[in-house]
Design a protein around this nucleic acid. Sequence first.
DNA 1: CGTGATATTGATTCCACTCAATATGAGTGG
DNA 2: CCACTCATATTGAGTGGAATCAATATCACG
Lengths: 274, 274
Amino acid sequence: MLKRLSALVSLNDVEVELLESLTFEMREVTAGEWLWHEGDSAESLLVISEGWGCSARYLSDGSRQLLATYLPGDILGIFELLSGIRRNDVSMLTDGRVCEYSYSSIFTLLTASNRMRSALFVIANQHQAMLAERLVSVARRNARESLAHFLCECRERLLEFLPDDVDGFQLPLSQQDLADALGMSTVHISRTFSALACQGLVRRHHFHMVILDPQRLAEMADFDDHYLNCDKRILATNTPISFSDSAAAEWLPSMSHESKGRPSAEGDEPTASS
Amino acid sequence: MLKRLSALVSLNDVEVELLESLTFEMREVTAGEWLWHEGDSAESLLVISEGWGCSARYLSDGSRQLLATYLPGDILGIFELLSGIRRNDVSMLTDGRVCEYSYSSIFTLLTASNRMRSALFVIANQHQAMLAERLVSVARRNARESLAHFLCECRERLLEFLPDDVDGFQLPLSQQDLADALGMSTVHISRTFSALACQGLVRRHHFHMVILDPQRLAEMADFDDHYLNCDKRILATNTPISFSDSAAAEWLPSMSHESKGRPSAEGDEPTASS
DNA sequence: CGTGATATTGATTCCACTCAATATGAGTGG
DNA sequence: CCACTCATATTGAGTGGAATCAATATCACG
């Protein structure tokens, strides 16, 4: 649940309690089920408890591009906290379970704990970093490097929950899904898997992956786990976060009074000049 | 300065005043100058007042991938607000001026106005959306579509500040920069420009772009400005009054969204997926 | 008037795509 | 258990879009 991912940010005494007191709704979901569509109104945070999901952009020519994959423990819908509108289509790749937390309960959580705020921000950061890394893969790496990088990333993310036995895991993406994620054709995904297998780096059967040589795989992919873990480390070391000084400390925790903003419609200022 | 971008989010009476009272340091910067490097500690928000900048990832083989471009009015360093560490290398593409706001002063701002909080979040959102769209370009579009899309995006972003005369503007990216942004070679950028010019869509001389036929260019690129503007529209329409009670009131700009999106159809499924 | 950064053009190569023909299972029902 | 189907995966042949290599152009600038 949410607790898990938050645990990565070294949360303390009261916060755990607070987390556990949050109301949520656990839901069973099936492979292929939509969690939401672009444009839907967003009123809740989703935590994947079991199964894999993904977000994607669908193009006018019928093809699609996977933007992110979501693993157990991942939190979805952070970005929509303030905009209130879903930005991408999100669906499940497998059967699973998701926990739904209404935004209002999340707000109370965030109000109470600045560590939780940081945690959510860090997660949003990670998603951004993964997206950037995917761009690098698609733009600059060849098929083998790209696929190898993706596998390294999956392995690294799973490490958190399956510290033992990471080198053999279920990768519930079809070759079609992988192709959509990496900007390749299914045919070439197949060939590339063969190539990696030939080099003794991986083995794959159905949806079961075996990473035979993580070391060499990471080398070939120019994989550096930094982008996945750096923020985590930061938060682990700096317990209260560096800027716990006056103004920062007041940010969000209390906010007892706000600038009584009456809905003044006066707004559009001409923004000419350069 | 900051006021400009914030004006896009319909801010009111007191907030403008507050913005203007913020202390900041204006700095001259020159083309090629680093604004910061990955790993630097982050203590300030940067607003580009003049000139263009970009963030990039540098690969071990010496090549680089542009992750984002920054135009006048753009705000950099939002993501680092809570992590305190810069995540990418950022440099200037041209001479220009930047305003630096220390995080502590930003915190006071955010504390005072929830509309400002939303604004910053929205901007972070936009950056994420542009990154996703770039991924789509690189992964799914061919050279002409990709370049056309990039040009449409630039045009759309500039519209905000040069409402007149957007169709002829300075595009201070060399073909090398464009290649690094779009995952192509410089040679092919050149050829692709020629192709677009042949079709009477654009004209380019040195760093001066002329969009001859924005309509057709957008069509060819499958360009939809939605991802750049949707959040903006949301904040502009929803009057920032809060449903008074809970903690949410202190957080949200309020959004009284009644499912304006499509009624989440319960039955349809992702097209291609297991 | 050189010099160096930037851009154009041609020739060639190659990685990955497309098309097409099987394989391999998993699931279903007779 | 077998026959059928459908989704998924593999393999081959042919093609093409973009990369690379290389030779100029063009132009800003000292």
